[in-house]
Structure formats: C-alpha cells, structure tokens
Amino acid sequence: MTSAPPPRRAAAPAGPIAVAVEGVTVGYDHRPALTDVSLSVTAGSLLAVIGPNGAGKSTLLKLIAGIIKPWTGRLTVLGGPPGSSAGRIAYLPQAEAVDWEFPVTVAEVVMMGRYGRLGFLREPRRRDREVVGQALDKVGMGEATDRQIGALSGGQRRRVFLARAIAAEPDLYLLDEPVTGVDATTQEDLMDVLEGEARAGKTVIATTHDLICAAQRFHQAAFINGRLVAAGPANLVLDQQLLAETYGGHVLVLPGDGGRVIIDDAHHHDQAPSGEHHYHEDSR
C-alpha cells in the first residue's frame, strides 16, 4: 500500500464486511444480467450503485436481498448466505415493482416493514405502531398515515417506502432508486436520513440515476454495466473515463461547483470495453 493522501470526502469507516460478493454471475432465463461481479461493502458505508438502464443495478440488489440466487460465485450478507438474515435487511423495490392500486394505507405499508420482526401469526403491538409513527415522521409523512398509498404522489410514495425500510430497523438497507422522482429538497432530506443511518453503523446500498447526488452524498460508488466496471470512493463518479466506460462513451461531466453531468443517450453501453478497474482511496 502506498502512503494515502487524505481522502477528499467522508471515507467509509473501516468496519467489518457487511456484504461480500465474489465472482457472482446471475441473470434471467439463461441470459446473464451480471457477469463475474466481485464487490465488498464495509459496514457503515453509503454506497451508490450507478449504471445505465438494464445495467443490472436492480439485479444486484435482488441478489444481495436473497430474492434471486447466484448462478455461480459466492455471496456473504451480514455474515451468512443471502436470505439467512432477512430480518436485518430492508429492501425497497423499484417503484415499478409495486401495485399502487392496492387498497392499503400509508401506515399499513410502513407496518409491513415490521412483519419480518413480528414473525408469523403475531399481530403488531404498541411498540410496532410507535416505530411506524417515528419512521413516518423521519421522512416527513407523519400527517398522511390514513391515506391510500396510490393517492400519493410519486415522491411521497418513495418517502413512505423509505419509512417502511426505516421501520424495519435493519442493519442493511437495499434501496432501489430511493430518490428517483422526488424533488430536490426531499432528496436532500432523504439523503440526510440515510447518512444518519450510515453514521449509526448501518450499511446503505442504493441505486441511483442521479450522478451528482451519488458524488456528493454517498461515500462510495459502484459502476455497473452488466459487470462491475469500477468500485471506489464516490468522487470517482466525476471521472470522465469511468463514466464513459460505464455509460458507453457519451457522458460529459462539467466540473465546477457540484458539477453537471450530461449523458448522451443516443448511443448505449453495448460496446463498453472490457476490463475492470478497482479504485481504492489509498491508491489515488
């Protein structure tokens, strides 16, 4: 190891490994969606998973959540095989995966976060209702408990689902696009909540399409494009070459205050060159 320059932003605490993915390949109907991915996430990290549509970001989260099983490779989540510690994991699905017409209220949705702890045949108790109320307050939805979930706006639904994740009191958050479709202020609020959780030692892995948010508010970033292109500190998101490799060569980051990212979507990621970079804070 070379002598480390001081990291430019909040570095991940060097805690125990929360998630270890080793050479995993997985996909759907015999078509791989992720090939030979290796990634390790220390406890207390705030990790952004970025990449173009269809890159396999959601697949990675489902894999860690134990919803899908790897074809090859090994996976350790919170010290055991995936699925073995479901009660300590909160998974927030991408908005498209949920039936919004469903007749449930905001409070009922958030209470679902408690089911993993409650277990079969047990009814929610007072403490569960308290946790639900606090989680809703945390995301600023404490006033909306009795509204039907489908009657909320897209951003409000995301907040409620984040409250559900918080109510589960997990050690590992797996959040699929938690801030997609929310306004800038709400996004800042939600990121504050996640940052607080990470500071409390929880691990947060979230996919996002917002590269600025990834660069500014997360500790680490993983670049995905059918494979792991790179993983390292979050400010790598401003690295032109990496972005080009991940998004297929048509991303432009304008440096400056916070930066601005322009992605040319006309071409896509199918000709991304192979080869995988691992950036570490102490080697840059």
Partner: peptide, 10 residues
C-alpha cells in the same frame, strides 16, 4: 402488494 419486498423480508 409487494412480492419483492416480502421476499426480501424473509
């Protein structure tokens, strides 16, 4: 309501 979320919670 949410099969993926339910699966993830065990």
């Amino acid at each position: 309501f949410d099969p993926l979320g339910a699966a993830a919670s065990g």
